[in-house]
């Protein structure tokens, strides 16, 4: 565990991970009740990755990811109410109900989506890094992808340009071992995604994505590298999603034992809680207070997502262009 983690930081990290966990559990319930529809990809199990990375970012840094994005948004400090209301397709959602689970953004929090096309977020993130460099704002872009996206051609086009132009981007590969139903063994010749930048001289490393401290340390090294003008960095995190690829996936391609083993022995929140109590000597009642606050926050988000009205029918024809589009 990094020595730099203060009690306050630890409590925040625990709170953020727990918020994601509880938020996603509720989202799953709302999906079952028919209040959330379509594609909905839960982040449960991977919480330490986004929370660890976010904990080392600076205000000007930008974040972009694919469609398993609820955790990223909550880690970016976006309002859980706005995220949940977007999941239920209501006007109080971040995209006013027009984006859904996969398409949410917050300029205020420098979160740039929320992209539904596997891998497409990677060149876009590279472009955000291009803008950081162009504007000389010392910002870094975190461009996240899964092991599945890591085989898309545009990822390598991005690596090449980022290395060529020394762009301040950290490519984060959240290796949860399955691209939908296809295991990394069946999808990838050579499973070391972090080493795939070698040909371009991009440094890479792999860390345990279930241990917040390891994520944090690796993310600090990567962002320091990118921020210093040395160019891109690849981080691969070994992680696991407890649920199926999306809500409609029964995940029959892996055994119950495999999932249970991770839940019991490698759960990122349990691990961090133990660390807080045993090493940081944080008291149980402080943790309990966070548990209660998170529960309340999520319940408020659920309530908001149910009561926020659906978008007005007139919203169908807004936001197509920056100016109002005349109907033909």
């Amino acid at each position: 565990m990094p020595k730099s983690l203060t009690e306050k930081e630890a409590l925040k990290a625990y709170r953020d991970m727990l918020l994601i966990r509880r938020f996603e559990e509720r989202a799953s319930q709302l999906y079952g009740m028919g209040l959330i529809a379509g594609f909905c990809h839960l982040y449960i199990g991977q919480e330490a990755v986004v929370v660890g990375i976010q904990s080392v970012l600076k205000p000007q840094d930008t974040v972009i990811t694919a469609y398993r994005d609820h955790g990223h948004m909550l880690a970016c400090d976006m309002d859980p109410k706005g995220v949940m209301a977007e999941l239920t397709g209501r006007s109080g959602g971040y995209s006013r109900g027009k984006g859904g689970s996969m398409h949410m953004f917050s300029r205020e929090k420098n979160f740039f989506g929320g992209h539904g096309i596997v891998g497409a977020q990677v060149p876009i993130g590279t472009g955000l890094a291009f803008a950081h460099k162009y504007k000389e704002d010392k910002g870094v872009c975190i461009a996240s992808m899964g092991d599945g996206a890591s085989n898309q051609g545009q990822v390598y086009e991005s690596y090449n340009m980022a290395a060529l132009w020394k762009l301040p981007v950290v490519y984060v590969i959240e290796n949860n071992h399955y691209g939908m139903g296809t295991s990394v063994e069946r999808s990838s010749a050579g499973p070391n995604y972090y080493g795939r930048g070698q040909g371009w001289g991009i440094p890479g490393e792999k860390a345990d994505g279930m241990i917040l401290g390891e994520v944090r340390e690796a993310a600090q090294r990567a962002t320091d590298h990118a921020r210093s003008g040395k160019g891109p960095y690849i981080l691969e995190f070994d992680t696991y999603r407890y649920r199926g690829h999306s809500m409609s996936d029964p995940a029959k391609y892996r055994s119950k034992e495999e999932v249970e083993d991770v839940k019991i022995h490698h759960d990122p929140i349990d691990h961090f809680k133990t660390y807080m109590i045993e090493t940081l000597k944080i008291k149980e009642d402080q943790i309990k207070a966070i548990d209660d606050e998170v529960k309340e926050t999520v319940l408020e988000a659920v309530e908001f997502s149910k009561t926020s009205p659906e978008p007005d029918p007139s919203e169908l024809y807004t936001d197509i262009l920056k100016e109002k589009v005349p109907l033909q």
């Binding site: 060149p123 955000l128 545009q154």
Partner: peptide
Amino acid sequence: VDTPITEHGFAGLGVGAAFGGL
């Protein structure tokens, strides 16, 4: 800026740069 021959990549990079204020 001269790009490599990588249309998918640099079109996406352009989109990201536009999101980023350019």
